[in-house]
Nucleic acid binder design. Structure first.
Lengths: 243, 243
DNA sequence: TTTTTCAAAATTGTATACATTATATTTATT
DNA sequence: AATAAATATAATGTATACAATTTTGAAAAA
């Protein structure tokens, strides 16, 4: 119902990404263009374009003899993606501290931080949905702080890899011991990061962001360890090689 | 003559990238698919695919109303690209130091370093061509050291941006004062980097690589400052906004 | 039984025709 | 004359037909 007035390409891109993320095509087999095109109700042309973009994203990989298949991700691959995201986000923070950030952007950041506070201290406990949303906003803003379109783009790129986004599978982690406490810890890191940027402490800002990314890594490890007991429809989880 | 047995797509990709890099389509105008397809002697289908990939590379950018145009790069954009390359290469070095590198790869690195030495101390002065080649090899190897396919890929990606590669416009810099001396300095950095990795000194390896990337930045600044006096066919230079 | 060869089938790569949308030009109106 | 509307033109987006390649499967040979 949201697909009207979307181009065939955009439709195919969204649909195909979702199917791949949910493990619809697992098996390492080449995915047939005619079959998938029929499944998505479009022609081969926009589908091929969508496939091309997913290859660029890293979700699919080309086969030497033609066509492409779903890429497989080991746990190490995803850990690397999370670490690399932390590294580039750290660079964004350092650049922001070194180059300065407009008062307007800073006030936006503070507004987001207050939003996160409210999500944590909601009257009926934690407001997951709101937290996830605000957290994503914070990281988007952090990328913007860099003042570099390239850095911003690369953060987005890496964050698009399965389970690498700062908000990935956040709401599935209620089972983690001391989960709410870790959210509070993350929020203190958020504030420290903004503080360091405001004070033009580049090295500190970078280090803090990297440390912040380690939380995602810890959560990912927990997620994969207890995988069987958790709901299995976390997007991207199906792509993690089991061995 | 090298284009036989290349697919239409590969042909279009190479040709189009080269044309764009050399400023054939400067002007910010949308580049017409039919016109360019005719110019490359192929049909629209593989050309569109090639355009799509160049958009993913960042060389072209999509236009909201359809089609795409050549992206424009400010000096700051390129400086950011060089810095980001340094950051990710630094991560590769740190990962290599932390995780360890096989003896075989290390010996390959040492062989490359000796090759660079020979290029610098060639009987008839400096051997540019050889130096450029070996230097590229060193950086490729460094990416490989990370042990992470993702990190390797992202280094390649960023290095593909105009003037961001570690070997970009190296041979055009003979006019730089103390140029050979700076190559010797760079080579000492290379050795220090390998040493740090061998000794599992992650933080040092990372810092050294970042410092190493600053050389490219210095050279880029020199290049753009004296741009009028230098040969103007340095690939990518045409894309730098003059203002 | 296993391997090799060859042909048929199916799949991807490419070209092109068509539909749809954006752009340019012209005409009408203020 | 300047602006707005309308039409004509040209461009991109999409579907499909065809060509080239790969894959599959069967038949023949070892």
């Amino acid at each position: 119902m949201s697909d009207r007035n979307l181009s065939q390409l955009d439709h195919a891109l969204l649909e195909l990404r979702s199917l791949v993320m949910n493990g619809e095509f697992s098996g390492g087999q080449r995915l047939s263009e005619v079959a998938v095109a029929k499944q998505l109700g479009t022609s081969r042309t926009p589908l091929r374009q969508a496939m091309d973009r997913l290859v660029a994203e890293g979700l699919l990989e080309r086969i030497e003899t033609g066509g492409c298949r779903v890429a497989t991700f080991t746990r190490d691959d995803i850990a690397d993606a999370i670490e690399l995201r932390g590294v580039i986000e750290g660079t964004a923070a350092r650049m922001a501290a070194e180059r300065g950030v407009s008062a307007e952007l800073l006030s936006q950041a503070n507004a987001v931080l207050e939003g996160i506070d409210r999500a944590i201290k909601a009257s009926n406990g934690l407001n997951f949905e709101c937290y996830v949303h605000r957290n994503a906003e914070f990281h988007t803003l952090l990328a913007k702080f860099s003042g570099s379109a390239l850095v911003q783009r690369e953060i987005e790129r890496v964050s698009m890899l399965p389970l690498a986004s700062p908000s990935a599978f956040l709401s599935e982690q209620a089972a983690i011991p001391d989960f709410v406490d870790s959210l509070r810890y993350a929020q203190r890191q958020h504030r420290a990061i903004v503080e360091a940027i405001t004070n033009h402490e580049g090295a500190r800002a970078e280090a803090l962001v990297r440390e912040h990314a380690r939380l995602a890594l810890i959560n990912f490890n927990y997620l994969t360890d207890v995988q069987p007991t958790l709901v299995n429809d976390v997007p991207g989880l199906a792509l993690v090689a089991s061995t």
